[in-house]
Design a protein around this nucleic acid. Structure first.
Lengths: 339, 339
DNA sequence: CAAGCTTGCTCAATCGATGAAGCAACAATT
DNA sequence: AATTGTTGCTTCATCGATTGAGCAAGCTTG
């Protein structure tokens, strides 16, 4: 092989010169529409061979500049520290590639400033669509995209100015709560209201889950005390602090708990271990979100699994059909256990 | 505000016309070197205001085509289903952005074909560096990059033709093994050789860890039977099957286990629960890699935490100084427990 | 044999941003 | 008055790929 270890990259002009032909012909051959452009297959073969020999790689910047569509699709995602967002990203990449789209993904660490900055960066890269996952201010992102004529879409957390695909948080939380209460009945012999831990009271998902949580209690003729709704944020430490404070204030905590995310669950479990509050009579738990190890932490910790493939099918359905109808699609979450 | 809801994007030519000036002046103002180009601050202000009003966004493709450096840095990563790779990606993004680089990351799902395809795609996007994380064939990627004059770097799994930053797998595994054996002594009252579960026997990390595993046994005057090294792959199911097979063959499994990754650990724990093999006398476990929930699964499951910040510091140290020296940098992993 | 068609290419404009070179207007210096 | 310097711009070529338009050579048809 004759691979030049050059610094300068090979362009179609270099190949044209080597092949004794024009850049135009090279371009046509390499981007596959040489039949349309009536290039002979001999020349096509020669050019293809040369391109391979020279290790030619298309300059996407130049190509995209000329073309009308970029085929780039962007996603912003808050964190990579849990299975839920991890599987969203994996599925997104796979499904984008299946459609010949190039996915670019950025993690914004729940930082509103970074979300905006990342969205702007993606617009500069000429994304055709931007999927804002779990964004703190989805409408702001929609506006920024709209100003550049780029369509956007909310995932996980809904916005009001672009289509949104989210879990059915109300129904999911209601069923999860029902299951935890039923486990309480089965294991402790009686039911009493549960504690709700984690999430931001201001975000849509959390408030819907609180609503479902209350509804499930109401279904069984119970009401939940407001100070048993600990929407203290997602971070593990915040859950720990909130539990500690409540335990101090009330002496005894409830037997059952609804935890609003695996990341909060981490803090809850840490506090339980550290405080020895539940030693000898483990709490009856449920978590909105799934993690394989968390699921193994107790005999039957109920875990709702959000339907990531279902959600991404809905996302790409919108993208495939170009619909920008501002609707909110709610995907029922999955309960893998028996009960 | 006068935001045009146009489809066509605003360019510097549009702004130039609106401002009654030239595209060149607009460009100079918007990319910040208008002082160097002696543009008056009045004009600069006017252009800045117009750009904001019109929702102007730079066309990166055009800009990059013209400039010599792309400031894009690529990373390929196998999976998003564990904390280790998740934190690598988060740290990589953060550190890249701190340096004014634009990170693009692609998940290749441990698929060798996809790794190559992804590398090629990144070259087309003119990345300046490509970090191949946990690649199955790092040298192939190095070669592809070299053919385009792009520097590359291996992370997590080493290659022979580019600088590599990896954990000190040998020392880490030796210390982890020592700790598991010491836990055995403390809890069971005697030590016996451990079982090694997970990973691919062919990959560098696994073979180094096996070496460390054997060394720790040798340190205590023990040898490990070859059929107690179950390098059955990383997937949870594979670990389950391997354990099942060994249990069937030998009747009784060892008291202690060294598990080679959290993802294999998942399979191990699943099998332990399902088979009831260890009911009543839980195994003494250690895992090369850390997961917060997995760590809570037993009284003292030893978990080695790979030093992700340390590794990425090493990566960016190479990038910052442009060194392409082919060296293998080994970062000691962290032991957070007391022992 | 002229007119028209097909084949197999080349030419040149274009996408949007960049920056070297140049130029007009005015000020300062000799 | 002539020279030199400074300020504040504009002009234009360029990056690499794409594509409509065009053109020469050969072939077909009436």
């Amino acid at each position: 092989m004759n691979q030049p270890k050059q610094t300068k990259k090979t362009t179609i002009y270099d190949l044209a010169e080597l092949a004794g032909t024009s850049a135009s012909a090279v371009s046509a051959v390499l981007n596959g529409n040489w039949k349309k452009r009536r290039i002979s297959s001999q020349l096509a073969e020669k050019i293809t061979r040369l391109a391979e020999e020279q290790g030619y790689a298309l300059n996407m910047q130049a190509s995209l500049l000329r073309r009308e569509k970029s085929k780039i699709i962007g996603m912003i995602v808050p964190k990579y520290d849990n299975r839920y967002f991890g599987s969203i990203v994996e599925a997104f990449e796979t499904m984008a590639r299946e459609r010949g789209l190039f996915p670019i993904i950025t993690c914004t660490r729940r930082d509103p400033e970074l979300e905006i900055e990342a969205a702007r960066a993606m617009l500069s890269y000429q994304v055709e669509w931007l999927v804002a996952t779990g964004a703190t201010d989805p409408d702001r992102i929609t506006d920024i995209c709209a100003a550049s004529g780029v369509r956007s879409l909310n995932l996980d957390l809904p916005g009001s100015r672009a289509p949104s695909v989210i879990s059915d948080n109300f129904a999911g939380a209601r069923e999860l709560t029902r299951r935890i209460l039923s486990n309480c009945q089965r294991k402790v012999g009686r039911v009493e209201p549960l504690l709700f831990v984690g999430g931001r009271g201001t975000d849509h998902n959390t408030s819907e889950r609180v609503r479902g949580f209350r509804a499930a209690h109401a279904d069984m003729g119970m009401t939940v005390n407001d100070n048993h709704i600990l929407t203290c944020g997602y971070a593990p430490e915040k859950a720990e602090i909130a539990l500690q404070a409540l335990a101090q204030a009330e002496g005894n905590l409830t037997r059952g708990m609804f935890v609003n995310s695996t990341i909060s669950f981490e803090g809850v479990m840490r506090w339980i271990k550290r405080s020895h509050h539940y030693d000898g009579r483990p709490p009856i738990m449920g978590c909105f979100d799934w993690d394989p190890f968390a699921a193994m932490l107790g005999d039957d910790i109920e875990m709702v699994r959000q339907d990531v493939p279902g959600m991404l099918n809905a996302v790409f359905n919108i993208i495939d059909h170009g619909s920008s109808k501002i609707e909110r699609i709610q995907i029922p979450p999955l309960f893998l256990g028996q009960s």
